[in-house]
Amino acid sequence: MTLVQVAQRATDLDRAAAFYTDLLGHGPAARFDPPGLLFFDLGGVRLLLEQGAPSAVLYLAVDDVPATVERLRAAGVPVEGEPHVIFHHDDGTLGPAGTDEWQAFVRDPDGNLVGLVEHRAPATT
């Protein structure tokens, strides 16, 4: 079994398209308006943005959590949680073994919480 699609609330498709295009680094895969559906391809999983969907927390992998947060902050995106190490992966159960998992949280234009995730080698002292 694999995940096919995740739905997220978006009250303004143009505003949502601009935000997620900037965040993801690529534009929508499809738009059907009416009825008001906007799709992004996330590595084979569809992100559906639609007015009738409930709010969800999305966790998206990024190359550099601190740099992504600073870029989004400069664009006026609300930052809810600053970049920090949330977990060290001793084994490969939930992430690459030997890496630290960095996370930060921002809000999209509809107020939905979006987690940003990066796996990084631990800093050496």
Rank of each mutant, 00 (worst) to 15 (best):
I86E: 14
E80G: 07
G81T: 07
D64S: 11
A104V: 01
G43D: 01
R46A: 12
L37D: 13
H84G: 08
L24F: 10
A17G: 09
F19V: 05
R107L: 15
W102E: 00
E101N: 06
Q103P: 01
P28A: 15
L94P: 00
V4Q: 12
F105S: 10
S55W: 03
V117H: 06
D33R: 06
G95I: 01
T99P: 00
L47I: 04
H88A: 10
L23I: 05
A67Y: 05
D41W: 12
L113N: 09
V79E: 02
A7M: 13
T125N: 12
L113W: 01
D22W: 11
L48H: 10
R120Q: 04
D64Y: 05
V79C: 00
A30F: 15
A123K: 13
L72R: 04
D64P: 02
G111T: 04
Q8E: 11
L60E: 05
T125S: 14
R9S: 12
V79I: 12
V57Y: 09
V4L: 14
D41E: 07
V65Y: 00
H84V: 06
V57R: 08
D33Y: 08
V62R: 00
L37A: 10
V4P: 00
F32W: 13
D64I: 10
L3D: 06
L60Q: 07
H26N: 13
R15Y: 09
Q5D: 11
V106L: 00
R9M: 07
L42F: 09
T125E: 13
G81D: 12
P66H: 03
V69T: 02
M1K: 07
A74Y: 03
T93I: 05
L47Y: 06
P54S: 14
T125D: 13
A18I: 12
A67D: 08
R15M: 11
Q5H: 14
G95Q: 03
D12A: 07
M1R: 11
G27C: 09
N112C: 01
H26I: 12
N112K: 00
V69C: 02
D91N: 15
L47N: 07
R46N: 10
V57P: 02
H88L: 06
D110Q: 02
F40S: 08
V65F: 05
R73C: 08
L72Q: 00
V62E: 06
W102K: 00
G111P: 10
R71K: 14
L37C: 08
P54V: 08
Q8W: 05
V65P: 03
V4R: 12
Q5L: 15
G98Q: 01
W102L: 15
N112L: 02
R73A: 15
G27P: 13
A7S: 15
D22I: 06
L42Y: 08
E101P: 02
L13H: 08
